[in-house]
Design a protein around this nucleic acid. Structure first.
Lengths: 220, 220
DNA sequence: CACTCTTTGTTCCATTTGTCTCAAACTGTG
DNA sequence: CACAGTTTGAGACAAATGGAACAAAGAGTG
């Protein structure tokens, strides 16, 4: 019973989805010099009820102590174990346009355990060009590179019309989790996970709540 | 009763959150030359049950026809009305680093109705520099610019340690919806909406489901 | 050591969310 | 115009999610 993070426990996806947010808040708390925290403090920072935080964490074991709260360093370590981010992960990037290049240069990945170690594009003028510490490879090298290195994570940063076929190729090569920046939904088998980042979708989720007013735009 | 998108109906947030995804799929269907679709077809494309799509849409009125399905152009228009994206929206961008610059240059916004029309940064060496069609403004101009133009939408692309104070300034100037790229949770009043984009969080939501294996990394 | 204060983890309950089912409506065909 | 085949939208039901409440455990105080 001391085993934590047993996938057979069938933890709801929605709970897993919150854990990275908790982890991020804990990182910050320890950066700020704190050593202990409570579900109440975390909840206040995150805008989540303290009961929910306690319940979420209790799925994986009792990490806190009554009367005291949670030892931040300890809880961070435990959450990293649950999320499997104690190890580093290699990530394949497909698409070396504006967005892909920005992702390749983004400094926020490596210090949190994700390393883009190969970049693919189908544009002949880009192939061979350096991006970050690597060289852009042609698409026909995708299978071998990803398969041989057993890369399980990929980011898609190609136009929408290519996203599905890129996803198919990645999955065939062994990728099991995709962060999709292309503005389109993709179909994948049940054992493959997808997360979507489309800024416009995120914006459209908020405009519903705003006041309509004819902002006079001098835009062509 | 012919009014759609009455906020007093109190539509669940989770329903609103799916509408932009439906809209995106409809855009694509019409691009592909289709004129009608069905909840079944949409569901297949999006990996969502057809019943859910019908129920979500029925919150806003009967947009379909039995035996036929949905007229794509009509449903697109209706969803745009519900989401209030028939009009264009001005967006303020705070932070002109790598990420902010990439956002300012991203072409995917304007053709979907979002226009970044001002950019702010606190770095004296950046102020006055052109970014896209605009010039980077100092932070002390934020209030007047945002307030005078009645800008309701903003993106935060500054380091985590500045995100909260930037959010506070934006809200004071009248912003009601924030797309936060800073890797930190921010506290806002109830009438202000926030969406988060943190690629690492999205990645960490997937590693839980992957096989741990010591990928031998030759990374320092 | 008694007493107060704090906080966790669990259980129970209310609410929310999603799915199933089906009557009614529409199309197309012969 | 009858009939077979689709598909919507609504209502009933089931599953999931979130929150309230509380016993138990620990810390601090005098």
């Amino acid at each position: 019973m001391s085993m934590s993070s047993n996938p057979s426990d069938n933890i709801p996806d929605i709970v897993i989805g919150r854990l990275p947010v908790y982890l991020r808040a804990l990182n910050r708390l320890s950066q700020e010099g704190h050593e202990v925290t409570s579900s109440h403090e975390l909840g206040r920072r995150l805008g989540i009820s303290s009961a929910q935080i306690r319940k979420d964490l209790s799925h994986f074991g009792g990490f806190g102590k009554q009367g005291t709260g949670y030892q931040i360093a300890y809880l961070e370590e435990k959450l990293r174990q649950v999320l499997k981010v104690t190890q580093d992960w290699e990530v394949a990037l497909v698409g070396a346009g504006d967005l892909g290049s920005a992702l390749a240069h983004y400094r926020g990945f490596s210090n949190r355990g994700f390393h883009i170690t190969c970049v693919f594009d189908n544009d002949p003028t880009k192939i061979g060009q350096p991006v970050g510490d690597f060289v852009i490879q042609p698409m026909n090298e995708l299978y071998n590179t990803v398969h041989n290195r057993q890369i399980q994570l990929a980011m898609i940063a190609v136009p929408a019309e290519y996203a599905q076929q890129v996803a198919d190729q990645l999955i065939e090569a062994g990728v099991r989790a995709i962060l999709n920046y292309a503005p389109i939904s993709i179909n994948v088998p049940n054992n493959v996970h997808v997360q979507y980042i489309d800024p416009v979708v995120h914006m459209q989720r908020m405009t519903y709540y705003l006041d309509t007013q004819n902002t006079p735009l001098s835009l062509k």
